[in-house]
């Protein structure tokens, strides 16, 4: 399967073609490069959109069956087109700005939030040698790229001019910053074991999935990832029963869709990161690598869904306690343990 093994070459070939095209049209060859970049961005965006549609459908179906109901059933076979219908509805809905809103901030917020998730998606290794952008510090990049999302959520909370939104935004900022710490710390053990920050090399180093060496780090990472994506039991920023919808209370139409997109993309990124760093990424027998990648990511995503539809929500202060008093020390202990293990073994 050459197209999977050598997509970088495919991209190069395409770029070359575009450069030729530009030259042929009497333009500088760089224009072809730019065109190629734009096309890449759009194709990634399309990937995002399709991915989120699949995830939303999967979640609604799984949630439905977990709750003794069917989930979407009306549009298309077993409701497969429901997500498409919803998307169309969101796109065509009038997007209005509340009178109280800080217009500029209000409008920009969803894109900032979305961009954070989108950027993180760039560095995920789908298969051996297959990743949109190869970075030798992929772990740091992914963690860093996801962070500006907090800013976007704060912007949304502030810009909506709504007290519920503001509360949601503030909660979210506190939560995401707090959980960034154990999240990063839990990955340090992996980095120490794999002796690299390059996701590809980290996967290559996993002859045995790292989760067996680092079970504590895995649990810490899992909890922190659920908190980072603002999902139940840590969906405090949205907290439907308290804050109606938290920071996106005032959003509708396409802007709301971007928040939605961001949430699912982020969930995918964290699931993929867990699959890559703890479960061996694309490594696996028989099936091609990308299959294993998606199977493992899917398993992690199922965990996200499962948690959401089972657990009640923590309170804001309990969440902080969990993050700072339990997860962070655990992550530190894990680092010390890993270091000692590496020293003596």
């Amino acid at each position: 399967m050459t197209y999977i093994a050598e997509p970088a070459q495919l991209v190069l070939w395409l770029r070359g073609g575009l450069q030729q095209l530009a030259v042929w049209a009497g333009l500088p060859a760089v224009w072809g490069d730019w065109l190629g970049t734009v096309m890449e961005i759009f194709s990634l965006f399309a990937f995002c959109a399709v991915l989120v549609m699949v995830l939303v459908y999967a979640e609604r179906k799984i949630a439905g069956h977990m709750q003794d109901r069917l989930g979407p059933m009306r549009v298309g076979w077993h409701g497969v087109l429901q997500v498409v219908a919803d998307t169309i509805k969101l796109i065509f809905k009038e997007s209005e700005v509340p009178a109280q809103a800080d217009r500029c901030v209000y409008r920009a917020a969803p894109y900032v939030v979305f961009l954070a998730g989108f950027l993180a998606l760039l560095a995920l290794p789908l298969d051996k040698g297959v990743l949109p952008v190869h970075l030798n510090v992929g772990v740091i990049y992914i963690l860093a790229a996801g962070t500006p999302g907090v800013v976007g959520i704060l912007m949304a909370g502030w810009g909506s001019g709504n007290k519920y939104s503001l509360l949601g935004g503030l909660r979210s900022a506190a939560q995401m910053i707090s959980y960034e710490v154990p999240l990063v710390l839990s990955l340090l053990g992996i980095v120490m074991l794999g002796r690299s920050l390059d996701l590809q090399q980290l996967v290559a180093a996993q002859t045995v999935p790292f989760v067996l060496y680092q079970p504590v780090a895995f649990i810490v990472f899992l909890i922190a990832a659920v908190a980072e994506t603002n999902r139940n039991p840590f969906d405090i920023p949205e907290a439907e029963s308290e804050l109606t919808a938290g920071f996106h209370t005032e959003y509708g139409g396409i802007r709301f869709a971007y928040f939605f997109l961001a949430e699912y993309v982020k969930m995918f990124v964290f699931s993929a990161l867990a699959a890559t760093l703890f479960l061996g990424g694309w490594r696996g027998p028989v099936l091609p690598g990308w299959c294993w990648f998606f199977i493992k990511t899917g398993g992690m995503l199922f965990l996200f869904f499962w948690f959401r539809w089972t657990f009640p929500r923590l309170r804001a202060d309990q969440l902080m306690n969990l993050g700072w008093k339990i997860l962070t020390p655990l992550a530190f202990l894990n680092i010390i343990g890993t270091a000692l293990m590496l020293m003596w073994l």
């Binding site: 977990m66 709750q67 139940n232 907290a239 539809w309 657990f311 009640p312 929500r313």
Partner: peptide, 8 residues
């Protein structure tokens, strides 16, 4: 308290 499933 944020648990959706008991309701159904």
């Amino acid at each position: 308290v944020g648990a959706f499933t008991p309701l159904t």
